[in-house]
Design a protein around this nucleic acid. Sequence first.
DNA 1: AACACTGACTGAACCGGATAAGTCAGGCCA
DNA 2: TGGCCTGACTTATCCGGTTCAGTCAGTGTT
Lengths: 339, 339
Amino acid sequence: MKRPTIADVARRAGVSKGAVSYALNGQPGVSEATRRRILDIAAEIGFSPSSAARALSGATANAVGLALCRPARTLGIEPFFMELISGVEAELSARSYALTLQVVADPDAEIAVYRRWWAERRVDGVLVCDLRIDDRRVPALRDLQLPAVVIGGPARTGGLAHVWSDDAAALVEAVEYLVALGHRRIARVAGLASLLHTRVRTEAFDEVCRQSGLTAPVTVWADYTGEEGARATRRLLSAADRPSAVIYDNDVMAIAGLSVAQEMGLSVPADLSIVAWDDSPLCRLVHPPLTALGRDIPAYGAHAARALLAVIAGGPATGAQDETAHLTPRGSTAPPRTP
Amino acid sequence: MKRPTIADVARRAGVSKGAVSYALNGQPGVSEATRRRILDIAAEIGFSPSSAARALSGATANAVGLALCRPARTLGIEPFFMELISGVEAELSARSYALTLQVVADPDAEIAVYRRWWAERRVDGVLVCDLRIDDRRVPALRDLQLPAVVIGGPARTGGLAHVWSDDAAALVEAVEYLVALGHRRIARVAGLASLLHTRVRTEAFDEVCRQSGLTAPVTVWADYTGEEGARATRRLLSAADRPSAVIYDNDVMAIAGLSVAQEMGLSVPADLSIVAWDDSPLCRLVHPPLTALGRDIPAYGAHAARALLAVIAGGPATGAQDETAHLTPRGSTAPPRTP
DNA sequence: AACACTGACTGAACCGGATAAGTCAGGCCA
DNA sequence: TGGCCTGACTTATCCGGTTCAGTCAGTGTT
């Protein structure tokens, strides 16, 4: 089975290649009757223009790139990325854009990938995840002038378009809820310190703890894996004045923390309240179900994809705020048992 | 910043485009000294050949496609796909192939995507997941003569190359282990009935139950989500002669089942043993940790990617067996409490 | 010295589209 | 009736590679 080309369509319609091109792209230059005939023939022989030829003639590659820079083991277990991807994908495929995915080892490898994609004209733009404190990717992308949308921010995006969510506000909501329940000693198990949104959350946590007159905020660092989440929790719960509530930077660490609490003989939520960030179905799966800070991640991805397509179309590099995560109370939070 | 083309390299090297092409592709026709000089210049100005131009000249697109046909909510929560993707990716990027991903709603949409990819010459081949009982994708791909590797099988792959794992053997191992522990009433919560590997497991389950002289095998159908896994478990545990052990077709349903058992006041593993299929880190996160049938999923993906590249290179459409999942006993299985 | 032969390269065609520039028939108006 | 538009096309060029058919200098052969 030979792939049909524009010449095949032209021959069967009895017109030139140019006429077919005009007809297919909705350009003026062909009569309505001819356009219809050409479109019918194209549909009949199953013609889609070669993406390569189209890209070569100066048009776009009709593809966007997404490079993921996380170790395979955390990539798999966190639903976040797959949900993000499915949202991105929904938006892209509706506009018949393809998504090119690459898993990279570190930010430098990621920059190399961007550079290659750019030189190969493989993608029209990229989505950038996991913004870091001093992110070399930002100036690199600006130098390449490769259209990009940063998923994160709003600060330090260096003039790149971005889509962000107000993590500080969400964290404040969670802390204030715990305070209202009567908690005074609230700890936090944070994700990778090098990521910008971790810093945003940490600053918000310190600030809200001070304002609420809580004990000095305790933050333990981890890396989103269950192992580290468990270790961090053990450390927190072994301390002399252990916290009565812990906020985790992702759901996987929160579930690990729940397990540790149970293994140490503590009852959740009576002895320890737990709040997870990222409200995936995982949170509803465990017992008790976890109170979580959640939002619509596929919608976030779709939002970012739309923003990227706008930049590719030549729009300005603006920042757009997405929904703020909101707290869904479930069985893992309650007033602390009076000591 | 302008993208360097082959003509830029040629000009700086003082040779023709053709010579540069030969040099870059390791073809004969240039002297070793000239080849070195051309390679150096290419590296210096950061030249990578345009994938579009290369694809257009009859060469390959240097990309493979993966269409995922699962609802977004199960896609996100199951680590399987993301792990598979990261394995595929590792293999592809080592050979500087790109991965094009698309999420589709149903098998017909998936076929449409294959047809479009084929007509657009966007990919050189595809990986096919979730083989079904009567899978229309198989004849469709054969008609298109689009290089493909089915992840699954070994039956009903209709002459397409495939990479498979012996689910029947793994299931037998799990059942025999439970029998050795003393279990007589073993139930199973199965995944989507339309998937081929579900049928393979069901047949193996029926067979091994008969051979071991167990009570008539009970299989409840679900769809891999926590909700359905919980519902299926409730049904099983509410029956008059409830099982003393349950095998789940994925980890998410197993975790949901664990929660249901605890919520119904049953102790795991004393009152109920649980075995999960797919040993993701999730299984180690809950309490007690789940006994699971696991294998190296990234390696599976890498294996499939290698097979696909071999088919693209013109190799025969063979079948290759991947590692069989093996049982890792953890805290969720034990001898049944004597009734 | 005439010849074939090889290695190292050049020139041009080609892939399949997009698009600027050119052609040509027909309608309109003076 | 001739000139001028306009619409509906066609023709030709270009994008950036690959590849095939030369070209040509240098080498070896007899």
